[in-house]
Amino acid sequence: MDKKPSHARTVIAYIVLILLTFLCLFFFYILVINCTRSHQQIQAGFSFLPGSSFAKNFNSVIHDAKLPVLSGIKNSLIVSACCAILATYFSALTAYGLYAYNFKLKKPAFIFIMLILVMPTQVSAMGFLNVITKLGMINTLYPLILPSVAAPAVFYFMYSYMQSSLPLELVEAARIDGSNEFHTFNKVVIPIMKPALAVQAIFAFVQNWNNYFIPALVLQENSKRTLPILIAMLRSADFLKFDMGKVYMLITIAIVPIIIVYIALSKYIVAGVALGGVKE
């Protein structure tokens, strides 16, 4: 039945959407306004108009010797980018293994991966810390990057996407054409998976950019720390030095790369969220 939504319904829908948009964007607005205001101004209360302390706040963030913001950005970029690449590539590889091949333990393997999906990071954190200490990886970026090769959520997304968009005949055609299995994956499967890879790369990037828990356990030296830890350090600075303008400025700096990633790849995100379940 093709029934046109009534006028009242449209109005209500718009009101709800406007409210939700306001809720989402208002905090960004507060953030941007507050990073231009001084500590005193912020403490005095909220204002809709920007202040004049943008340069002062920016300088105090960038030139704080105890707060290596630039190396923090660099570390965060390395970790997030590597995680995004590893998580998408290896999850696609795992999903392909389970999708395209028939072997005895196929079902148990799938169930095992799905079980890992429901396990919170915190549960295994102590064991993880123990292992990386013994491997001599403490206070390095490796423990943040390497585990992303096993990303069950990304795997599941890739698996669903393959079910809807990768006919096995393509793989068989490549086999007959003389392509070996790895070549088939890289040259035939990966290009077809591009939309799914793009959207999962964005999600993995953002997730790792915002990750606080594991970096806080693993990284001890200031020069190795990632942005979320630096933000936390600044917020817990001692009472006399506490500068809200500086905190807001650092948070603003921290979200800029994510906003850039989102704007640049928004077309993939919108298309990608609907991926997986829809057959063309």
Partner: peptide, 15 residues
């Protein structure tokens, strides 16, 4: 790949 055969599939299977 070593059988020297070529196959045409029902759904074309073009890359």
């Amino acid at each position: 790949k070593n059988r020297n055969i070529a196959m045409v599939f029902q759904n074309y299977a073009l890359y």
